[in-house]
Design a protein around this nucleic acid. Sequence first.
DNA 1: TGTCAACATAGACACATGTCGAAATTGGAA
DNA 2: TTCCAATTTCGACATGTGTCTATGTTGACA
Lengths: 127, 127
Amino acid sequence: MSKLELPALDQTACCSPMVREPLGETAAVDLARMFKALSDPVRLRLLSLIASHEGGEACVCDLTGPFDVSQPTISHHLRVLRDAGLVGSERRGTWVYYWVLPAALTRLSDLLQAPAVPVGAATGGDR
Amino acid sequence: MSKLELPALDQTACCSPMVREPLGETAAVDLARMFKALSDPVRLRLLSLIASHEGGEACVCDLTGPFDVSQPTISHHLRVLRDAGLVGSERRGTWVYYWVLPAALTRLSDLLQAPAVPVGAATGGDR
DNA sequence: TGTCAACATAGACACATGTCGAAATTGGAA
DNA sequence: TTCCAATTTCGACATGTGTCTATGTTGACA
């Protein structure tokens, strides 16, 4: 009997029990893609700048000035943010407007607050 | 007079006002580094798996099995998470334990909830 | 229709990153 | 001290990423 208990004790000493379901592989790929979009300082600042405007929306003409990179680079970064589902965009005549998609950001922050809370497959959708 | 008012109207039509201070360059570099650590699916799942254990802490021996990559690769990923300040680690005899640093995760989620809220320079510190 | 401004895309390039197997390091037991 | 298990680090390599200049696309206006 004592022999049977020792292995169990060994495992208890090494392993703490799981208290919740960890993130699955499919969700991780999706979420990692969004985090990757945020993993560049310029892109992070772009998102912040857009969100700092009234209504969480800004014109591109307001986004190309404050950075030390060229206009095509800003455009490329905005594309990455959009493709990752973090912002939406629309051309209105001369100007193109970008806006944050709060649902996507909420999805990320929910994960970080309780990282192992099961995340549903719901998408934010466009504005 | 009507000529003088048109340019001002044009600018109003294009630009929405700023309602808060956007993220600065220095903070963005720091935060982007943490997001980069989360931008790989395996690393995201590792963090989630650690956090899913009781006390937000897990033994490495629990972390090397559930993934389709080699043990050195898991070790490398854990290193990236640790260097980014998202987890802490400690060797206790035979086993090495990793735990999440909630303050770092909170810092990220706060940014995503109100992306343009000024983020202080406070660090999470180690456990 | 031609011209211009605003913005996006393409291609090239230097540098970064994920993964592997091999090797090194650390701690425990004999 | 030697041997072993657990874990980290190293070096190589294929692939990915940020940035640029050049070019293409879109919309407004004369």
